[in-house]
Amino acid sequence: MNLLRRKFVKTAAFVGATVSAVGTGILIPKRALGAYSKAAFDAKDVSGALTAAMGSDQHTASGDIKLKAPDIAENGAVVPVTVSSTMGNIDAISIIASANVSPLTSTYMLTSACEPFVSTRIKMAKTSDVVAVIKADGKLYSATKEVKVTIGGCGG
């Protein structure tokens, strides 16, 4: 009697695990990569966003990237960010606000005619690092700057 019960518990646990594994499996094909990567903007962490947007989350800090952002942003809804660089062969620039619900703010695909320069205004939920990630020659380089936010700009 007792043995039978043991077996039942074991089987139930196994079935449960399989169902949840299949459940997560179903989610993966939805993250199809396209010209506009929705997965990258939906990603809830920095490494997930980078992998979806830039192909990898491995990046090295580089002194050749200039990231201009305020030390203190009074209004998190409007934080001016400028990224420029002296590097050549730049394919893409991503701007990340680490503590946002979806860290990736934007990705810029540059053609060979472009100068490595992008300037925009982003929203930041709270004080965190702003990371500029540049893809050059197939590798990722980054520059980081902490921006203190007094009023968050992502609502909620």
């Binding site: 010209a35 506009y36 990567s37 990258a40 903007f41 947007a53 809804a77 409007v78 934080v79 606000a97 946002n100 979806s102 990736l104 703010t105 934007s106 990705t107 810029y108 695909m109 540059l110 053609t111 005619a113 472009c114 992008v118 925009t120 205004r121 982003i122 929203k123 930041m124 700009g153 992502c154």
Partner: peptide
Amino acid sequence: VMTANWGGAISK
């Protein structure tokens, strides 16, 4: 010359 992909975290 350039394409930008934006999420909701670009200012109004």
